[in-house]
Amino acid sequence: MRHSTRIAVGPVQFRIGSDWAEPIAALEHLYAGYPQDDTRPSDATVRLFAARPWRRWLRPSVHIGGDFVVPDALPLPLSMGLLAAEMGMNLQVALGWRRHMLLHASAVAKDGRALIMSGESGSGKSTLAALLGEKEGGGDWRLMGDEFTLIDPAGGNAFAFPRAVSLKNEAIAEVAARVDPSRLGPLLAATPKGDIRHLIPRADAIAAMHEPARPALLLFPRFGGEASVEPMGEGEAFVRLTEASTNYVALGEAGFAALTRLVRETPAFAISYPDSAAGIALVEQLWAEAAK
């Protein structure tokens, strides 16, 4: 690879190589505030490479590669190199990580306890986590991650994976209005996932990224419709989280034990909300009850 960089997000050390300088420069901007340890071996490698050597000069397009490759990964135009790097990082972690049970969920923490939100794309889990992480006055939430939450199979604690938050579509304006523009990456317009803009987490969230938090509340948000709260039984939460875990099967009995413990010890609710303000209010209300 002609250009490369190393990025540490939570416990994962990435090495990212690219045939082009631009995605690497963009990543180095987004991850400038993250701790650097050049002596640490990398856990996952992401490569953004040209489909054919001459295509780097002719019609540049980025292919995603690495330790694992999805056969039908989209070749993305060079302007989407940053998105390709993000997708590559997600892919390597989702498929390759074994030290923790990986949940496709966002998380925020307060007083050493974690609120974990699991949902499909469009559920608003990322936006809720980002907004809680930026909340001023009465906030004190630490963003643990907008995409993945790691659960230690031995002790049951949650660990952060605070990559740059991937804001999508309407969430971009909502969050951009509250943060310093220097914390936002370039607008990636009309990607296969819609408009995307990255948010650099707050410096205190990055500094605390290795601190564990005890799971205290599990939420399954759904954006749209009347505000509602439905308590969820242990069995349903277990089923939903097996679906939300990318490495549950690979972890074998350790994953089974970690997940049964998580759903037994953590109250779970499905929530619906019509807008972010209502969603935040519901989350705070449930947290106040769970944290008693």
């Binding site: 039984g233 242990e234 069995g235 349903e236 277990f238 089923v239 009995e253 089974f256 034990a257 049964t260 759903v263 037994r264």
Partner: peptide, 12 residues
């Protein structure tokens, strides 16, 4: 390994 989870029982 049998773990009752409310109305469901998970068996590994």
């Amino acid at each position: 390994r049998v773990e009752p989870l409310g109305e469901l029982t998970a068996i590994f």
